[in-house]
Every structure is written in C-alpha cells, then in structure tokens.
Nucleic acid binder design. Structure first.
Lengths: 132, 132
DNA sequence: GACATTAGTATCCGACGGATACCATTGAGA
DNA sequence: TCTCAATGGTATCCGTCGGATACTAATGTC
C-alpha cells in the first residue's frame, strides 16, 4: 500500500494519492464523454460534426471542452484544414490508442452486463429505466 | 453500428445511444471516485471512515453520494451494525466485483503511463504537474 | 439574393463537486 | 463527574461544470 507520490522522485505512481498527477489523468479519462469520444476515434480520425453525431446527446460546448482536455494531455490531436466551411479533424495519438484499450473494456462491460444491473437496481425505487 | 436501444426490446445494448440505460451506468462508473471506491473495496469490505482515508481527498458528502449511487445500481451493499459509535460496512456485490475488473485496468493503465503523459503534456502550458 | 454547411462561441440556468462545520451517542480516561 | 475521542454521516455555502439553446463567419450553390 505504497503512498508513492507525495515525496519527490519515484517511478511508481498511485491514483490513491491525492497529490499524484495520476488523479488529474484519471479524472479526465474516467468520464462518460471522454470514454465515448476516445472510443469513437478508434475507428479513425473524425471531424467535429461526426463526433457530435456519434456521441449522441452531447452539446457542442461540452464536446469542445472534452476534446480540448484530451488534446491538452496528449490523447488526441486536432488538425485544422484551412477551408470554408471549416474542416477540423480529431485523431488519437499513440497514447490515446493505449488509453482506448481499458476504456473499451469498460464500455463493453457495461453493455454486456446491463441486463443484470437493471434487474438488481429494480427492487428499490428503480434508478434505471428498464426499457429503452 | 447498431442503434439497438431506442426501439423497445433488444438484447444488445449500445453506450452510444443516448436513450440506452447504458449511459446512466457508464456515467456512474466512468467517474474518478467510483473507480477509486470500487477499487478500494476489492480488498474486502470497508467502513466509511476507512474509505474516506483511502480515497485521499474525498469529502464526506461526495463519498456518501458516490456510495449511494453505487448501492442504488447494485454494485455495493451497505450493512449497518447497530452499535455506538455507528458501524457501517460497504462491500462489493458480484456485479461490483465484475465491474472492478475493467476499472482496475483503467487505474493501472493510468499509473503505468503517467510518465509518458506528463512528458507529452509538457510542451504546451503544462496542464499536469510534473512531480508529486 | 436566400440558403445550407462547418466548427465552434455566447449565454443562461440548474445541478453537482468540494470545503467546512456540525451533530448524536456512548465508552474511556482524568 | 467532566471531558474527550470516535463514527457516520448531514447542513450549509459557494464556485465550477454540464446541458440546452441561440448565434456567428465565410463561402459555395441554387
């Protein structure tokens, strides 16, 4: 149970240490929209509008801030093609492709176990709709 | 690219469909504190205070609401032992143990790749502290 | 001249996260 | 007897964030 981070140099990081930068990264990735955006970009580079449609229900403001956050940490690149109307492409970096692996695992787990979850969450004041 | 959910009965769920209950589940699990709490509970049942200490930096209010959310969806159980001072134990359900797998993957990935991330996020206005 | 397209930004509002203070109850210690 | 610590929260306040909606610039097309 090492508290590795708070004390200077180290080569083992710990998401359970509040001062470890891990926390910021976890906060960025452990987020509904980030998980969906990175997953969408696994199919190849996408334009803003395509992501907006794929991430059904996201508002443009939130999509912008999600992508800016991912860009700032080096998970995606943003490429502007000078054209009118504007043409901007977002793509995963190598780092982004790496992060996509555990995130895909999470998305897949949720999809595959939803039925069990709704079953369980059923009895007490149903926090989850049962049918789509 | 199936939009499986919005139309009644189905046995394939899709986190990319805004109306699929998947979304609520993903929103609950794809969250910093949920990921940490479920990870902490993998070591066995824990009391409120122990979780509070383990999830370094969480406020009691947020810990309560996180645990209540996980309980409502059937990922953790809450057991009250009638005693003074109060004694309450939180534990993973089978479902919670299942969800813990991809979440561990995500936490581990972040810890193992933090150095690359800070390196990349370095050049532009460093959104991430480099040392702990 | 009117309209569609694209990648956002501007604005408003309510919900949520985070920080802090506080509570009830009892056993142990002074 | 008085005081203190321990536990599992709740109450309160405040700033940030998410979500919804409207709007913009610049150009090609009809």
């Amino acid at each position: 149970m090492a508290m590795n981070c708070p004390s200077g140099r180290h080569d083992r990081h710990d998401v359970y240490a509040s001062l470890c930068p891990c926390r910021e990264v976890l906060d960025l990735l452990a987020n509904k929209w980030s998980a969906l955006a990175i997953g969408a970009l696994e199919d190849g580079p996408q334009r803003f509008g395509a992501l907006r449609r794929r991430l059904d229900g996201i508002s443009p403001k939130v999509l912008t801030s999600t992508l800016r956050g991912l860009e700032a940490m080096g998970f995606v690149t943003r490429t502007v093609f000078p054209a009118v109307p504007p043409h901007v492409e977002y793509a995963l970096t190598d780092l982004g492709r790496g992060a996509a692996v555990p995130l895909s695992g999470l998305r897949r787990w949720v999809e595959q176990h939803l039925d069990e979850i709704t079953e369980v969450a059923d009895a007490p004041s149903a926090a989850v709709r049962r049918t789509c």
